[in-house]
């Protein structure tokens, strides 16, 4: 439903904020947009929503080109800009009413749609207070309510959970997940757990270019820790165990961690597999065969933050 082709944005002759980005987002898909600050996430979103004109490339939403038919395209999009701006002197009710008028929602269904958006974003308690006086969390939710008011097929949200407390984050993620099957959604975030929690796919951009694109699982598979095994054993057998693990054919490396004082009698190992293959069954069988008591044993899926760091800085540790 969203097609981005070779999008480029230059500011002046020297700064290239977005450098040839292409991707598609289909119905029912939630795309997480990741990248360090200044990587070009917001600039890309601003071009998709028609706030900035691209230097080159095309943006199409449900077949509508943002440059050829800006109004028609904007009608199909719900957009939460960075920082969730809203007119500070208005109350949420007045503000949503204004959005409904501008979006030409028929008068008959305005009340109903506003009520629905208010319920979904849990705004009812602050409807008559000036937005200026609301907490950061409520302001963010006013922005969300504005974006989903006209039930758009395409939702674009720049850091939708920024500034929310853990409960509110949870609520917003649930809301996004509930709406997902009917829509194409792009969210930008720098909270990596969020990608794992709600995104079907993640794109990491850096210096205006896509450096990774895949499902969260596929991205985590690129992690050094993918299929690594964490195992905790009694400290008295630590030395023997370390040598034995290192001697195993599929173990590439072993890291030994000293646990805090409270558990001084225990030692934890991280075992890294060769070629990212699955290791946990083998290790389990091995320790059982030796009769070692295992206090902890689990396989890691991989670490998104590690992949993020390695693709955006080249740092692999």
């Amino acid at each position: 439903m969203i097609e981005i082709l070779n999008l480029v944005k230059r500011f002046g002759p020297t700064i290239t904020a977005v450098d040839g980005i292409s991707f598609h987002v289909g119905k029912g898909e939630v795309l997480g947009f990741l990248g360090p600050n200044g990587a070009g996430k917001s600039t890309t979103m601003k071009m998709i929503t028609g706030f900035l004109a691209p230097t080159a490339g095309t943006v199409r939403v449900l077949g509508c080109d943002i440059r050829e038919d800006p109004i028609g395209t904007k009608e199909k999009i719900g957009y939460l800009p960075e920082g969730a701006p809203a007119y500070p002197d208005m109350t949420p009710r007045e503000f949503l009413q204004f959005i409904a008028d501008v979006r030409r929602i028929p008068h008959g269904s305005q009340t109903e749609l506003i009520a629905l958006a208010v319920r979904r974003t849990e705004l009812a308690s602050v409807m008559e207070q000036p937005i200026d006086t609301l907490s950061k969390g409520f302001k963010r939710r006013v922005g969300l309510a504005q974006a989903i008011l006209h039930d758009p097929p395409v939702l674009i949200m720049d850091e939708p959970t920024d500034g929310l407390d853990p409960n509110q984050k949870h609520a917003v993620r649930n809301l996004i997940r509930r709406m997902a099957p009917e829509k194409a959604i792009i969210i930008s975030t720098h909270i990596l757990e969020e990608v794992d929690a709600i995104c079907d796919r993640a794109i990491i951009i850096d210096h205006g270019k896509i450096v990774a694109d895949g499902t969260p699982d596929a991205l985590m598979a690129r992690s050094h820790h993918h299929n690594a095994v964490q195992i905790t054993l009694d400290s008295e057998i630590a030395k023997i165990a370390e040598e034995a693990f290192l001697a195993m054919p599929h173990v590439a490396d072993v890291a030994r961690h000293d646990l805090p004082d409270r558990t001084a009698s225990l030692t934890r190992f991280t075992l890294y597999p060769k070629d990212g293959q699955r290791l946990v069954d083998e290790i389990g069988a091995f320790t059982r065969a030796r009769g070692w008591s295992t206090h902890e044993l689990y396989a890691e899926l991989g670490r998104l933050d590690e992949v993020f760091r390695s693709v955006t800085t080249g740092d692999t540790q």
Partner: peptide, 14 residues
């Protein structure tokens, strides 16, 4: 300054 221009110009308003 308040960023609402981004909101206004991404609404379907000519």
């Amino acid at each position: 300054k308040s960023g609402t221009i981004e909101l206004l110009l991404t609404l379907p308003v000519p």
